[in-house]
């Protein structure tokens, strides 16, 4: 439903605003490309910490240097994948990056273990666009994600 989507976007925007206000960092120059303010280069650290806590056992702590380190890793990850995805769409003379470009990018860059959950998200996303958006929210879902995580842990 468009209302819930707008609400979600509104909440996200509010969060971004709060982050902007909270951040006192100086602006940071980047060579080439768009010049981004420091607070735009990174995702909000409180959100990242919430996600980091999921795989860390009970009462596990995350040191400040690890939080900030992952914050930078995340931005680099997004840039890395994005650059790869855009190359494919450009090679095929398309201006728009699509979900399949992203799938191929993950595969090309050695993140094969992300392709399966990504495919599932992509499928669900497209289904939800075709019909009622609530379908995504209501769908019961096998925990392939857990399976992938377990596989990841095994490979390390």
């Amino acid at each position: 439903m468009s209302n819930s989507e707008d609400s979600q976007q509104y909440l996200n925007d509010m969060l971004v605003k709060e982050e902007d206000e909270a951040s006192g960092d100086d602006s940071d120059k980047q060579d080439g490309g768009i010049m981004l303010r420091e607070q735009d280069r990174f995702l909000p650290i409180c959100n990242i910490i919430k996600i980091m806590k999921v795989p860390v056992p009970q009462n596990g702590k995350i040191a400040k240097d690890a939080r900030e380190c992952i914050q930078e890793c995340v931005s680099e990850f997004i840039s890395f994948i994005s650059s790869e995805a855009i190359e494919r769409s450009v090679a095929e003379n398309r201006k728009t990056v699509n979900g399949d470009d992203l799938l191929v990018a993950f595969s090309n860059l050695g993140f094969d273990n992300y392709v399966e959950p990504l495919s599932i998200y992509l499928q669900k996303y497209r289904e939800s666009n075709k019909s009622d958006r609530n379908l995504f929210l209501d769908a019961s879902y096998p925990h392939n994600e857990d399976g992938s995580s377990a596989n990841d842990a095994g490979k390390q």
């Binding site: 768009i34 840039s79 994005s82 769409s89 450009v90 979900g99 497209r126």
Partner: peptide
């Protein structure tokens, strides 16, 4: 962040 690493191209909501 995605746009800052792409010289060209558009991003769909899906992506």
């Amino acid at each position: 962040i995605m746009k800052s690493s792409m010289d060209t191209g558009l991003i769909t909501n899906e992506v």
